[in-house]
């Protein structure tokens, strides 16, 4: 899976958008930031350190956990029972109040939305994608999930139920996709490369092995 590039996950966030025009929103944030620093509420170093911490949250983290669960039934049981502890086992610090893993089965496909806002398991998936925070997804996912999934190119057969889970700030969800057929001989790392961000939100299926 050569197009699955993990290198950027570890980069410190140092790039400024110097090529973009300064917008009112950015100017307002810069004003806020300067006032918070001047007022002693936080330091520039603290902001930088927190950005670096936040950059550790990426879809690769969820992929590592799910790949481990696919090869290790005991780990899978622990992940389903206590997702935050299972994350810690792999050295992932999950800052969410609570995380719950829900497993896709041949009978039931699961997907996640946050209808009220944008609650998302950032420690395991990074910042939410544009579709996830869009009003269209937030509105429609709970009413017509099959139709929404078809817009993502995912056709769930009518015989398979779809369960939609509405996240909130106190409880966020991770979907464990089914391990694709034909992956029996694959290593954990190879398996992790099949697990995309959207498959952990339930809006895609894992990549089929080549």
């Amino acid at each position: 899976m050569s197009d699955h590039d993990h290198d950027h996950d570890d980069h410190a966030p140092t790039r400024e958008d110097d090529d973009l025009e300064l917008t009112e929103g950015e100017a307002r944030f810069l004003a806020l930031k300067s006032l918070l620093i001047e007022g002693g509420v936080m330091t520039a170093d603290e902001i930088r350190a927190r950005m670096e911490f936040n950059e550790r949250g990426s879809p690769h983290q969820a992929a590592r956990m799910i790949a481990r669960a696919w090869v290790d039934p005991d780990y899978k049981a622990r992940m389903l029972a206590d997702t935050k502890s299972a994350a810690a086992e792999l050295g992932i610090e999950a800052t969410e109040a609570a995380l719950v893993t829900i497993e896709n089965t041949p009978e039931r496909h699961n997907m996640v939305v946050c209808t009220l806002c944008s609650c998302y398991p950032r420690s395991l998936l990074g910042e939410p994608p544009a579709f996830y925070v869009s009003k269209a997804y937030r509105s429609r996912a709970v009413r017509e999930p099959r139709k929404v999934l078809r817009e993502f190119g995912v056709d769930i057969p009518d015989a398979v139920d779809i369960a939609v889970h509405d996240s909130n700030a106190d409880l966020r969800y991770v979907i464990m996709p089914m391990r694709p057929q034909g992956t029996e001989g694959m290593s954990e790392e190879e398996l992790a490369a099949l697990i995309t961000r959207d498959s952990v939100v339930g809006c895609a299926l894992p990549v089929e092995p080549a």
Partner: peptide, 9 residues
């Protein structure tokens, strides 16, 4: 949640 809306971006 449940409102109608256009295509998901």
């Amino acid at each position: 949640g449940g409102d109608s809306a256009g295509p998901v971006p």
